[in-house]
Design a protein around this nucleic acid. Structure first.
Lengths: 344, 344
DNA sequence: ATGAAAGCGCTAACAG
DNA sequence: CTGTTAGCGCTTTCAT
């Protein structure tokens, strides 16, 4: 079933069929109806591959994610998919599993498939790798900033600043010995959070002890085990910043099982603001991580770039998405307020 | 940058370049090296669109999901992506949002893009809709069974049977008044679970009371609110089967806040076996929902179908994936065991 | 308003 | 072993 058979059936040329489908207004209403009728009757759908080959445009964008099993990445994906769909595009989804080689292969592959644009989330590519991508002239937007990404379209959250804000808040409450449970350090975002942790402590005149930072798997179990480590050591922090809510929930579970009270004995602050974080006891103080928004904005930026690309040189943009501290019970702020009121 | 420029540069014909890329063994080592060198030097990558047009094969499969923000769907997606990548395919991902029209449009769209196969998870298509899909002869696998899917490739979990097993277990423990918190009823899986609930009660000689079934949003808040409803009513169940762990966790939170004990006052059983379910107190008894496995198996079945399709008529398959009851503390089984031991 | 024809980039007969 | 060539299905000038 191709355009030729439709043309024959409708008694017109292939050019006319093509026009009916793409520029219906330039063809006479009469023939248009005729062609449309045949198209309908024969259940014809044009071959987008052929069209893409001719037009050098596929209406496909690609999203590369470190993995799928993570709420933040899912949110990003949904954000991207929503705008892609709205624009009539379709999304290819690839996961790179923190494997730079796999990432490079995928990108190569996607470019040969002539995708119109790519969004690379938390990419591990080096400047060197990017060179070959640039050569292909494909519109690209990055999610998550890193030092290799100068002069690139980037949409990002400032995890360092967000963490500084957390530490400031914890110190304000009165916590002195602040520990940290940090997800896998190779991930850029975790390194930024660690940096923010150090900066925050310094800013608040608190000491940084390496022993109070524990690296853990980014899931409930990781947080649970990290707290076990803290408790087995001599020095127990009176507050812990945990780089993800999932880990934080695991951490809280261990604390509770140890007959310690949150936030009285150990206060906890997480990161992400998962829905579930409002349904643990005590409710988790956390940082809103606008992942869906990043996906949305990155996709919109991508489409802008693609459209500009048709005209003059596209302007590179860096877009900062604001995170936000969400104060609930687990950090001890409310308790602290009470104390202050008592004193006055 | 196309095959022609490579041919010219290497001083051979385009056919030879094509051969070097696709059947390297049939071309003399000497010319092969020469061509490869040029390919490398000029950073040439073939245009897969053109190849696909010629070969009528794109090495693309599509996965349609109800939405992305759900752990089960993400697991499915990861399963599919893993085998697609392994086979050298790339995955298009679309979400249909329980909107049959959007689903139909996407499928239409994907077919015009000449995807080699599609996996439709928890589709809402009718037999009628499927007719037009079949006409296009595209390999298709469904995840999640329903009555419209006779004579289709289907990979599924028997949610009804799984639920019967849950109810049986709850009844065995001694729970008499068993309630249910069920996710959105339009979703097939929830309807199956409801059916299983009724069958299970009947089988165990327990009464089914409509008042003990509450429909809720499939998230922690939904479970929380559902329990509130139960508590505000006269009749409080002594055990609740909740159709997802996320809701179950919300439900547990409300129970604990009401100063009731789990499982003593109200026992809880969830569904999904999320990682976090082992990190709530008490640990959640639940049903392992092998979503990743479903994705994996569905993708493998899809590739089988695609490969068979080249030969004779493909054999339609229905594959049942086993779920499994995971007994932990929240259902009261351990407590019950103790009682039994005391008696003896 | 319509048709003829070129060509997007590639692969696979077919011929040598 | 290699080159020539005919398409794959579509869009778009260029004529008419």
């Amino acid at each position: 079933m191709n355009i030729k058979s439709i043309a024959e059936e409708a008694g017109v040329s292939v050019a006319t069929v093509s026009r009916v489908l793409n520029h219906p207004d330039v063809v006479s209403p009469k023939t248009r109806e005729g062609v449309l009728a045949v198209v309908d009757r024969m259940d014809y759908t044009p071959n987008l591959l052929a069209r893409g080959l001719k037009l050098k445009k596929t209406d496909v964008i690609a999203l590369l994610l470190p993995e799928l099993r993570d709420f933040n990445y899912m949110e990003i994906a949904q954000g991207v998919e929503d705008v892609a769909h709205q624009k009539g595009y379709v999304m290819m989804l690839c996961t790179m599993e923190d494997d730079r080689t796999k990432e490079k292969e995928y990108i190569e592959n996607l470019m040969t498939r002539q995708v119109d644009g790519m969004i690379l989330a938390f990419s591990n590519l080096t400047k060197q790798d990017l060179l070959s991508v640039k050569k292909k002239q494909i519109a690209t937007v990055f999610i998550g900033r890193n030092s290799e990404l100068a002069d690139e379209n980037v949409v990002y959250v400032d995890y360092c600043a967000a963490t500084v804000e957390v530490i400031r808040h914890m110190a304000d409450i009165g916590h002195k010995t602040i520990g940290m449970i940090v997800g896998e350090k190779p991930r850029q975002e975790n390194r930024e959070k660690l940096l923010g942790f150090q900066k925050g402590l310094q800013e608040m005149g608190l000491d940084y002890h390496e022993a109070l930072v524990i690296e853990a798997a980014n899931n409930a179990e990781g947080g649970y085990l990290a707290v076990s480590q803290f408790l087995n050591r001599g020095q127990r922090p009176d507050a812990i910043f945990v780089t993800s809510d999932m880990m934080a929930i695991g951490a809280m579970e261990k604390i509770k099982q140890s007959e310690l009270s949150i936030p009285k004995d150990i206060a906890i602050v997480g990161f992400d603001n998962l829905k579930i974080s409002a349904f643990v006891e005590p409710k988790l103080t956390t940082v809103v991580n606008p992942a869906y928004c990043m996906g949305l904005v990155a996709a919109r930026l991508l489409f802008n770039t693609m459209e500009e690309g048709e005209g003059q040189e596209a302007q590179v943009q860096e877009i900062l998405i604001q995170s936000k501290l969400k104060v609930r019970k687990s950090c001890g702020y409310m308790g602290r307020l009470k104390e202050i009121h008592k004193k006055t």
